[in-house]
Design a protein around this nucleic acid. Structure first.
Lengths: 387, 387
DNA sequence: AGACTTTGTCTATTCATTAAACAAAGTCAT
DNA sequence: ATGACTTTGTTTAATGAATAGACAAAGTCT
């Protein structure tokens, strides 16, 4: 799209800047916003007045004086509207309603009968009907819908390829916008998870992070400078198919030695001496709690291979924080020491210096919350400039 | 830095937009610029007048009429100033003088006597003295200096770590700016190479590319959406230490199975059955020309491992183009088929679809030209906005 | 020769930011 | 309690960048 500079752009930039500061540092005064942003007091006053008119900001009363007139404190009005967050996974559909600060109001999960697009859309429609009825009375109502999908997504919200659903080239955003008459954002499941953890979870204080979703495969969401990073043509982070054993196990993708064969739930099938039918992390965690040597050994191997892949990602992206999420997060007590050992032995000293490996704080909710936040972020009209 | 929106920013954005269009599509009329940018004709006229006053744009005469008044054609004045591009490599120092379109005017190379910072700065000073005398008479003269360094660089132009030089924490930009009184930009050698190929080489028509510099090690420069991509804290792409054999050869970095041990000039030491003292690509290319089976086998292995690492990068960054540069580029005839075979077998179908693997067009010059372009780009004050 | 096109400039207007003045409301030492 | 000083937030006038539309200049085409 053609972007040129004009006064509307200036206002958009500054209004977004003011709102961001209020969201981050509330309660605070107009004068403080002026100091934080570098904008003139008069400018801040004008923009704040517009935000108050939009009902996105509230005056919450007077604050402490610091030797002069008492400031009028401003706060973000998190109840001005609500967002829907959807996680479409292989077996089930989860929908949450959140306020504008990503706090979950209600949550519903239902099993997916099959993977056909129509079935999925019908189920969504039924579940959304329930959700819409639950939206509390508010100025803006339901402001949008964010969806996390287990596959590759382009910038137009088309699902390019979702092998576990058997989807290929589904114009999901278009269909959902038509169906619900709402602005819709579509993200890869791992990217949504990364956004969720960045905004409300383990990554709240980080600017550069890699979120690794470890389930029946591995996906990564990458945040650089507070922004979700997607490669060319709108998606990236298919790191599960990074080869860590050049001549290792053959993978369904055509390659060999893919990371996810060794370090995800897929390892349950691939690494046991006696192939074991159970590919459920909960089962193996239970076994590990009972000190079953096979489970301990299994998680050690998974931990080590996670460490190897994490090292590779750290050398490429140099994040300050790596967050491990997905089902495998439940095995933290058994994998963590091995991940830690491998990472601290293998990463380059400069990368290691400030690197922290953590486990998802939002647990199963990272993706739905992140998906909802993508919709919120679009509604609030965030803008960034780089020089 | 605090960035707010004001009229100066608007003007900067639009002026940069106009100049970019003139550089890309010259010769063209003001009206055409207005159509291309979406800016009002009057705005374009004003900005073009300023650019003419700055001597960055010239009126090159009248063009063809299309049924009305003849247009006044505009061109970018590539001789308005000159930039210095420097490549600091392990054995030598290369300096070029380029015009504002990156065309090399003069070029000098001298061996580095040792790796001490002072020695290097002294040599630079001597070589720059020669270069300065060669700058043709022009409005802006020598507008800046860009340097490509074999190591990690932060956003302030500090060389954090350059193992092959033994440098650690050298404030190179600061020292050079003081020494020469010029704006200086510092980039990683591979990033500079990527910029060079993007602007003037094999990547001219690409927006997303990965440039792989294969010499005594591997470094990667990543371009996303036409912009050099650096990770957190200003550097990224240390992909040479990506582990592709989880339990492979031990590497000096502390890890095992690092890509560069198998796919760079380091492979000459590591993969031969009889360790061979010769680590020179030129030597092995000569051997391969004589159909020596050992050389053929060597390049086959290097090609295959290059393909494996490239696959990993493609899965993470999804570029449309991969460019192989550095000394190893000389072995293209012997490695290319193997790279191609592995990449087309291993990459995910969606990534493969539009992916092209090419070899550096600028050859040994990618880095110096890219470094010079970094200085030019800063001089021209390019701005980008994203919404 | 006259109607129509195209290019590029000029003029008046709009609008966002800003500096500075200002009013309102507080603190603090005496 | 009083008066000097501080702090907050609004008002006012000025600045300047983009823009629509008018307009002049220079061309083409029938």
């Amino acid at each position: 799209m053609k972007i040129t500079g004009d006064q509307a752009l200036v206002k958009k930039i500054n209004k977004s800047l003011v709102l961001d500061n209020i969201r981050s540092y509330a309660p605070l005064s107009r004068t403080r916003v002026s100091q934080l942003t570098g904008l003139n007091k008069a400018t801040v006053s004008n923009l704040v007045q517009e935000l108050i008119d939009d009902r996105l900001v509230l005056e919450s009363g007077e604050g402490q004086s610091s030797g002069g007139r008492k400031p009028l404190m401003l706060e973000f009005n998190q109840s001005a509207g609500y967002a829907a967050g959807v996680e479409l996974s292989v077996n089930e559909l989860t929908i949450v309603l959140t306020d504008l600060e990503g706090k979950i109001i209600t949550r519903h999960t239902e099993p997916l009968p099959d993977h056909r697009v129509e079935t999925t859309l019908e189920l969504m429609q039924r579940m959304m009907a329930v959700l819409v009825a639950e939206v509390p009375p508010s100025v803006h109502g339901l402001i949008g819908m964010g969806v996390g999908v287990p596959g590759m997504v382009d910038e137009q919200g088309n699902v390019l390829f979702a092998p576990n659903l058997g989807w290929e080239g589904v114009p999901l955003r278009e269909e959902l916008e038509q169906l619900f008459g709402l602005p819709v954002t579509i993200d890869n499941e791992a990217n949504a998870g990364a956004i969720g953890e960045l905004q409300f979870g383990a990554g709240r204080h980080a600017r550069h992070l890699v979120y690794i979703s470890v389930g029946m495969g591995i996906g990564s969401g990458i945040i650089i400078d507070g922004q979700p990073y997607t490669g060319a043509r709108g998606y990236a982070g298919e790191t599960g198919h990074m080869s860590v054993e050049a001549n290792g196990l053959p993978c369904s993708c055509g390659s060999r030695g893919c990371w996810e064969l060794y370090a995800s739930e897929l390892a349950y099938e691939h690494t046991l001496i006696d192939p074991h039918p159970n590919t459920n992390t909960a089962y193996w965690v239970q076994q590990a709690m009972w000190d079953e040597p096979e489970a301990i050994r299994l998680f050690q191997q998974i931990g080590e291979y996670l460490g190897i892949g994490i090292t590779n990602l750290v050398n490429s992206f140099n994040p300050e924080l790596v967050i491990i999420g997905g089902h495998m997060r439940q095995a933290e007590p058994w994998i963590a020491p091995h991940v830690e050992a491998v990472v601290s032995q293998r990463t380059l000293p400069y990368h290691r210096q400030k690197l922290v490996v953590q486990y998802s704080e939002l647990g199963e909710q990272s993706t739905v919350i992140g998906a909802a936040y993508a919709a919120i972020s679009q509604f609030l009209g965030r803008v960034r400039i780089s020089i």
